[in-house]
Design a protein around this nucleic acid. Structure first.
Lengths: 205, 205
DNA sequence: GTCTATAAGGTGATAGAC
DNA sequence: GTCTATCACCTTATAGAC
């Protein structure tokens, strides 16, 4: 294992500045649509200075994806800890919706990547993410078997939660173009709708 | 109004070939990620020959967006024609899911465009699409007022249908990476799940 | 650590022969 | 209508001064 040299304070600060600026630009234009000039300008640094901190454009992008992957998937890990099935899933839905409101750049970063075939994170999807989803699908199946949850396909339930919540980040311009909301006010209506949607679907009769 | 010269048979054929090849490439890599070389190779033509039929790369992309926009939105227009509210909406959901299965390239073309801020179709979204959605929202509100549909927010209902169904095209690699389905077999499970989801939600008590 | 200058390669588009 | 050749520009990345 190669040892990383510990970073000075100014190095840490510039690294963070670059990653934040890069998240801005990558999430809006995708990997190929983003230029180092744009990132440099957004970060307030020169282009060669960017490449002093990161060896390449791809290295910046990869660093973002790897750093954010865990955070992005994290809420799913907490499903099944308390044990009130419908409430847990509804809480997960609302948490995911909050993340679309508060971290839309992260959502779009992944959306760009996945729509274009996930060339850089396919291994993560087919490995750790797949395992986690299958594990939670088992939890949900257990709840259904115990009669605590209506009978639904666990995988497609999870897909539907991902899609309905991330839609408000990934397709933000379309949502805003149609609703013309004041700020983020429409997220309250979305929360109410989604809570009802999943509560009615999942509550056993 | 400028008259367009009618196209010869070979011109029509090449134009179609180019647009189909361009849909392949644009839907996978986005506008900036696509090169004329890729389109030319996919179409079996030379790069200058491409530009004999279209004046620029952007012209090819625009032609695709404009041509497919109507087709893509079309199923929404038919809502409210028969008058059995729950059945109509469920039929719309299943029709949209079929389109994700049979026309994933079209779905991803728009997904790429909208995730990146819809620079080329924002007018279409804020104009005709917005009007159509608002019109259908009124239809749905009427059904709710008549007690034929459970009380839900019509706009967020439509957004949820778009997101859940298009997810299977736009996030196809993620879905397949997790489910490892045989061909398109998982679309049947998705259809069953989504039909139950909307039937339970929309049927009045 | 940060800059200016520049190399090296890719990309959209055009010229002109056939 | 289609091709080869090529231009002009953009973009990533490096060299080397400070």
């Amino acid at each position: 294992m190669k040892m990383e040299r510990p970073k000075t304070r100014i190095q840490q600060k510039n690294t963070r500045t670059i990653l934040d600026a890069a998240l801005d630009v990558f999430s809006q234009h995708g990997f190929r649509g983003t230029t180092l000039d744009q990132i440099a300008q957004a970060a307030g640094l020169s282009k060669p200075n960017l490449l002093y901190y990161f060896p390449s454009k791809e290295a910046i992008h990869d660093a973002l994806l790897m750093e954010l992957m865990d955070t992005w998937v994290d809420p799913l890990r907490h499903i099944g800890e308390d044990g009130h099935p419908v409430e847990e899933i509804v809480a997960y839905v609302l948490r995911k919706l909050e993340m679309s409101r508060d971290y839309p750049r992260e959502s779009r970063l992944f959306a760009n990547e996945i729509v274009q075939g996930a060339p850089r994170i396919l291994d993560q999807i087919e490995g750790p993410l797949r395992d986690l989803v299958n594990e939670k699908a088992e939890v949900i199946r257990g709840w259904i078997a115990a009669g605590e949850l209506a009978e639904v396909d666990p995988h497609h339930l999870i897909f539907s939660i991902w899609s309905t919540t991330q839609h408000y980040a990934d397709f933000d311009v379309q949502v805003r173009g149609i609703l013309r909301p004041e700020g983020d006010a429409h997220f309250n209506d979305a929360a109410q709708f989604l809570e009802a949607l999943y509560r009615r679907t999942l509550t056993p009769r």
